[in-house]
Computed example of a mutant assay.
Amino acid sequence: MSGAQRETTEYAVPAGVLGLKGPVEKPAPGTLPLRGDLAHIALAGSHLAAHYVIPHVRTVGTEGAGLRLAPRADGEIFATLPAGSRFELLDVAGEWVWGCPGPQGPTGWCRASDLASAES
C-alpha cells in the first residue's frame, strides 16, 4: 500500500526499525514477553515472532499477583507483582492470563482473578 499512513500506539514500532539482522539470543523463560507463538508488540523490532500483541493494560488486584512459568496452580511463583501495579495482558487461557508489567518483563502466568476487574 504505497503512501499508507501508520497508526501510532503507545508501543508503535518506528518506521524503518524492522529489519532483523542475524540470530538473536533466546531470552530465559520469564524474562521478556516472548513465546514461540507470540510476543509483545514492543519487541517487533528486535525479536521474531509469529504474532505480535498490543497489550490490554490492567491493574493487579488488592492481593498482588504471583507470576508462574506455566498456567498451573502447582507452578512455582518466580516473581510477585504488588497490588495496584500495571499488568499488560497478552494472552488468556481459561482462568489464567499471560503478561507482564511492561515489555522489559518479568513475564508469566497468573490467575485472571489476581487482576482488578476491567472498567467498562
Results as ranks from 00 to 15, higher is better:
84 G>I: 05
82 P>D: 15
39 A>C: 11
60 V>G: 02
51 H>S: 10
30 G>A: 02
22 G>W: 06
13 V>A: 11
28 A>D: 14
31 T>D: 04
52 Y>I: 08
21 K>N: 09
69 L>Q: 09
82 P>G: 08
9 T>K: 00
83 A>I: 08
110 C>S: 14
60 V>F: 04
114 D>I: 01
14 P>F: 03
100 C>K: 03
29 P>C: 11
12 A>W: 03
2 S>N: 04
120 S>G: 06
106 P>Y: 07
40 H>Y: 10
42 A>L: 11
3 G>W: 01
120 S>K: 12
19 G>I: 01
117 S>M: 11
74 D>V: 08
53 V>Q: 15
18 L>D: 04
35 R>A: 13
93 A>P: 05
60 V>H: 06
24 V>Y: 01
39 A>Q: 08
59 T>L: 07
70 A>G: 07
17 V>D: 08
81 L>F: 00
20 L>M: 12
111 R>V: 03
112 A>F: 10
45 G>D: 02
44 A>T: 08
74 D>N: 03
13 V>T: 15
93 A>C: 13
67 L>T: 07
90 L>D: 13
49 A>L: 12
75 G>A: 15
76 E>F: 04
39 A>E: 06
32 L>M: 15
84 G>S: 10
108 G>K: 09
85 S>H: 01
28 A>G: 04
106 P>D: 02
2 S>A: 06
34 L>F: 11
4 A>Q: 14
30 G>C: 09
92 V>I: 02
70 A>P: 00
116 A>K: 07
94 G>R: 02
51 H>Y: 11
58 R>P: 00
104 Q>L: 15
51 H>E: 11
9 T>H: 05
6 R>C: 10
99 G>P: 08
107 T>P: 08
10 E>P: 00
4 A>W: 05
89 L>H: 02
109 W>H: 13
93 A>Q: 14
1 M>F: 08
7 E>T: 13
65 A>Q: 07
51 H>F: 10
15 A>V: 14
55 P>D: 13
35 R>D: 07
51 H>V: 11
42 A>W: 12
89 L>T: 01
22 G>L: 04
111 R>F: 09
33 P>A: 13
56 H>T: 05
18 L>S: 14
59 T>D: 08
117 S>Q: 10
66 G>M: 07
116 A>W: 04
101 P>C: 00
55 P>A: 04
50 A>D: 14
9 T>L: 03
17 V>C: 05
93 A>R: 15
37 D>S: 14
100 C>M: 11
76 E>A: 11
15 A>T: 13
32 L>N: 12
76 E>H: 06
31 T>I: 07
79 A>T: 12
79 A>E: 08
27 P>S: 12
102 G>W: 01
39 A>Y: 09
111 R>D: 10
56 H>K: 03
